[in-house]
């Protein structure tokens, strides 16, 4: 409980990156990272949704589930909150910012099944964060995920014309790149432990 929200924010980006150390959000990370622009769009959408769903789930957990002693229903409640929020966001963006909808809209349904969103809410409960810490952790995780997918998309763009062994093409080489990135991020660990 003694970690400040500010420290937690930076720690979530670098020392315990949601993707490179906790392996969350791998599916969309591997499938969307072919282009830098779409990676950017998805990353921004993920960060935005993470901040709000973490806040909503924190409120739902502490004011709904804990008072009634039904903590075991947290999975169902969290999933419903995330799905409902994404749906609402989609409607709002479509109504008020059609231009944004066309560049970001296709990613929104993908986000509901992105395990990073759900995982951050679960980590928040397990590590007992307070409200401010949860928001900082959610936002930091989103930016960390954005950073990772942007790096992979840039590197994959460079690799497109290169000779890669046939069996490694696509997912295999992406995983190796991610492994090297994760090695680099291990260098940050120890600066600010958050567990």
């Amino acid at each position: 409980m003694e970690i400040s929200a500010f420290l937690l924010f930076w720690a979530a980006i670098f020392t315990s990156n949601i993707l490179l150390t906790n392996f969350l959000g791998m599916c969309s990370y591997l499938s969307v990272s072919k282009e830098v622009e779409s990676s950017m769009g998805l990353g921004i959408a993920v960060s935005f949704v993470l901040v709000f769903t973490t806040a909503l789930n924190w409120l739902a957990y502490h004011y709904l589930l804990v008072p009634f002693h039904i903590e075991y229903l947290q999975y169902i409640v969290f999933i419903i909150v995330i799905a409902a929020f994404v749906q609402l966001l989609e409607l709002l963006i479509e109504r008020f910012a059609p231009a944004l909808y066309y560049s970001l809209g296709i990613f929104l349904p993908l986000i509901t099944v992105n395990c990073a969103i759900f995982g951050v809410s679960l980590f928040m409960v397990i590590r007992n964060y307070n409200f401010l810490q949860s928001i900082a952790y959610g936002f930091g995780s989103g930016l960390g995920w954005l950073l990772a997918i942007l790096m992979l998309a840039g590197l994959r763009g460079k690799l497109r014309e290169k000779m890669v062994p046939a069996g490694l093409r696509g997912t295999g080489i992406s995983l190796i790149i991610t492994g090297i990135m994760a090695l680099a991020f291990v260098g940050f660990s120890g600066i600010a432990p958050i567990q």
Binding site: F23, G167, T171, L175, I176, T178, G179, I180, V186
Partner: peptide
């Protein structure tokens, strides 16, 4: 640590 998991899965897929 985390990196080995990425490398091993890549090798398995290969």
């Amino acid at each position: 640590m985390a990196p080995s998991a990425f490398f091993l899965l890549a090798l398995l897929i290969w």
